[in-house]
Amino acid sequence: MTEEDKHPGQRPDLILNGVGSAAGGDYDKVLIDGVGKVMDSLSARLFKANGQIRVKGKLKTAEVEVNGIMNLEGPLRMNTMKLDGILHVEGGIAGESCVLNGLLTAKGDCELEEFRGVGGFTIEGLLSAGRMDIRLAGAGQAHEIGVETLKVRQEDQSLWNRLLGGIIPKLKPVLTAKVIEGDDLDLEYTNADVVRGNHVIIGQGCSAGLVEYRTGLTVHPGARVGKEVKTGD
C-alpha cells in the first residue's frame, strides 16, 4: 500500500494491491486490486477497483469502474459508472450514467440519466432514469420506475448462464416493479401492478394489472393486461 503526496495542493492517490485496508478521505485516484477494505467515506476523482472491495461509508467520485464484487455501506454519488460484476449499495445511487454488466443492488433510490447494460438489479426505492435500456440476464426489481424512455429485453440466457450462473443465484430474467411510469415504455418480460405512459408497448411475457396510456398502446398477444385505460384529452 502506498499513499504518496504529489504536488502541494493536489490530492493524493490511494493505491491498494493485495490484501489490505485503508483509511477514507479525499483522493485524486483510488486504485484497488485484490481484497481491499476502506474504513471510511471516500471521495475521489477516479475510483477503479478490481477484486473484492468493501467501503465502509459513502463514495463520491466522478468515475467509477468496478470489476468484481464491491460492497458500499453508504450512498454512491458519481458521474459515470462502469460495472462488471456485482455492486451492493447500502444507500441511494445518483449519477449521470451507468453501464451495467452484472448485478446492481441499492437500498435506496437510484437516479441516473442513462442506465443501460446487461444483467440484473434490485432497487428498493425509486429507479429513475432518463434513458434506460436493459437486457435482463437476472432478476430486475424496483419498487417504482420513473423514466423518460425504457426498453427492456431478455438477454440470450444460455450464454449468460454459463458466464454468471455460479455467481447469481436468482436467474429468472424478469423485470418486476409495482409502478412503471414514463414517456416511452417498451417492455418485455415485465410484471407490474401499474404501467403509465404516453406511448406504451407491452411485449411478450408481460403481465400488468393496469395500463394507462395517452397516445398509443400495443399489446403482444402473449401478454396479460388486466385493464387498459386511455387518459388525457
Binding site: E111, S128, G130, E148, G182, D183, R196, N198, T231
Partner: peptide
C-alpha cells in the same frame, strides 16, 4: 400526480427528470 400532469400538460418523463 395524474391530476397534476393533466392540468399542466407535462409528461411523466419530465416530472422525473426535474426531480432528478
Amino acid at each position: 400526480k395524474k391530476e397534476l400532469l393533466d392540468l399542466t400538460g407535462i409528461s411523466y418523463g419530465q416530472l422525473y427528470r426535474w426531480k432528478r
